[in-house]
Simulated scan of single mutants.
Amino acid sequence: MRRFYQESWQGIPFTAFSHISFFHLADPKFYATFYEELFRRYQGWNDLPAIWRANKAKDARWLAERIRQVIARERESGAIPPDGPARVLSIGSGVGYMEKLLLEELPDVELHVNEPSTVGMRWLRRLIPAERIYIGLPPACLPPDVRYDVIYLSAVDYGIPTRELVHVLEELRSQLAPGGELICLSASLLEEDSFIGSFVNAIKILIRAVLHCLGIRRQQFWGWRRTRQEYRRLFALAGFSDIEDGILDDGFETYWIRGRQ
């Protein structure tokens, strides 16, 4: 596991809107300020960077197909009644572009969404009923009596410390319907974590810290990169079975891992 840093997101430099911390993770206040700046610059999903949208479109199609497979299996087993809705929960929906695409692919799915701040929900509120929007940090903000056939996290795992991530995965597993799946799409895969690689990375972080403190190149501590082995271990610790993972052919080599209830 290694720390990594960001200077911008969605084409927006962080120095344009917020205090940047090299040593502390971006918090909900940081994201709320970021989304305010994003909505000031962009009027809708189609204004977001084209390369990012193309990447998310490929990921959404893959995710939709995986959700179809889970729903078909659960309907066959009787976990989902023939006339009952299939429920899907998105953790950390961000601007909601993936959710918009999923609803286009799967219009009959009952989609629930979560985001730490109300600010980021501006566009998504047009598509999702208020009673299916949960604001806050999971699992505390989720209704305890609702079960989901699929729960997914898309590019949010990087900002969760390891101990917290295991706890979140455990709690989310308990909110899956029997046979349900949790899927994590990660944009922060660490290819390898050798001793030499870790040493070189530590030197790079030291140089970045000096540049940050001198005001030459200010960067925000963004989170952690993890290896495939670490992701599989976290899912196993959280109690998931039938764990699988792989790499998506989406132009960004997005890593995915899923486990069953």
Rank of each mutant, 00 (worst) to 15 (best):
V156D: 00
I205M: 03
L189K: 15
R173M: 03
D157R: 08
G180K: 01
L189S: 10
I183T: 10
A202C: 03
K204R: 13
L206P: 03
L176F: 01
F195E: 07
E181V: 05
D157P: 01
V166M: 09
S194F: 04
L190R: 00
N201P: 03
L189A: 11
A155Q: 11
L189I: 09
A177D: 00
P161F: 05
G180H: 02
E191R: 13
S186C: 12
A202V: 00
E164A: 14
L189F: 04
G180A: 07
G159N: 11
P161N: 12
L185G: 04
V168Q: 09
S186M: 07
G197D: 00
K204H: 07
L190K: 00
F199V: 07
I183D: 02
R208S: 10
D193H: 05
L189Y: 04
G197W: 01
I207G: 07
S154C: 12
D193N: 13
G179V: 13
C184I: 15
E192R: 13
A187R: 08
S198I: 05
I207M: 04
S186V: 10
S198N: 10
I207H: 01
R208D: 07
R173P: 00
N201T: 08
Q175K: 15
S174N: 12
S188Q: 04
E181Q: 12
A155V: 13
L169D: 06
A155G: 12
V200S: 02
E191D: 12
R208T: 06
E171K: 15
E171N: 10
I160S: 01
L189H: 10
S194G: 11
A155F: 00
D193Y: 00
L172P: 03
G197A: 02
R173Y: 02
L206N: 08
E192C: 08
V168G: 05
L189Q: 10
F199C: 04
R173C: 03
E164R: 14
T162Q: 04
V156P: 00
Q175A: 08
L176N: 02
C184R: 00
S154H: 10
S188V: 13
L176G: 06
L182Q: 06
E191A: 12
L169W: 01
A187M: 09
V200Q: 03
P161Y: 06
A202W: 01
L182C: 13
A155M: 10
I203A: 07
F195Y: 09
F195M: 08
E170S: 14
E181G: 05
K204V: 09
L189D: 04
V200P: 03
A187W: 01
E164P: 03
A187V: 09
R163G: 11
H167E: 11
L190W: 01
E191Y: 09
E171V: 08
S198Q: 11
S186D: 14
L165H: 12
L182V: 06
H167F: 15
L176D: 00
S198A: 14
K204W: 00
E164V: 09
S188A: 15
L153A: 15
G159Y: 06
D157W: 02
R163A: 15
L172Q: 10
I205L: 04
E170R: 15
S174T: 12
A202K: 09
L176I: 13
I203V: 14
V200A: 06
R173V: 03
V156Y: 01
N201E: 05
L172Y: 04
I160V: 14
L153S: 07
P161I: 14
L176T: 13
V200W: 00
I160N: 03
R208G: 05
E171H: 14
S194V: 08
